[in-house]
Amino acid sequence: MTFVIPFYDEIVGFLGISTILTSLYMQGQSFVDPTIRAISIQSLIITVLIVILFLHTGDLNLLYLAIITGVMRGVVFPLFMRYQVRRFKHKLRETGSSQKTPSLVLSGIIVIIIGYAMFRSVLASYFPDPQVAITFILLLLGFLLIITRKNSLTQMCGYIQEENAILYAGALIAPGIQILTEFAVVLDVFGVVVIGVILSAQRDVFKTLEPSDLEQLSG
């Protein structure tokens, strides 16, 4: 069963751009809480995009994927991360991040331009859907968030963004792999438990969630 969605391309395009905007918003935050809120919103936007894709194609697996993504990445993971922030009250702001956020937003814009140029020159002839470009850019922005930030929770948001990008790319270009991506989301539940335990250890041993102090290992 498929539905004809009025303004399908416009709606999908608008939502796709929104995911990139949430990503840029995350780049510009020096506090952890807004970053967590942004990743929650981004995950919910991806959920809506997958629901629209389900209505458009009628593939029921996409609906399951949307439900599991919305619940886990839109609600459960952000709640878990906010719980971690609450448990560590005096470190809600990343050290020295206020000075570098403008340059990080600028870096984000440069990454978007480079990502789009790479997509146009390499992938566009094989994947003509412009939404694929959005997933590619989101992936690069996720990496940028991980490599430029010190706070473990912000880095985790970057990782979730990467997974969101791949999940949406899978739904768009490889309709047969929804079951795999569903498993991947379920596997993340265990991952979150493990990460929670490691974050607790960071709190106990280092008294901080910023691995800037974790510089014992070198060589």
Binding site: S152, I198, A201, Q202, V205, F206, P211
Partner: peptide
């Protein structure tokens, strides 16, 4: 603990 975090994040990414 530092190694465990680096391992989880880098490998998962």
């Amino acid at each position: 603990v530092e190694a465990a975090w680096r391992y989880t994040l880098i490998v998962s990414a």
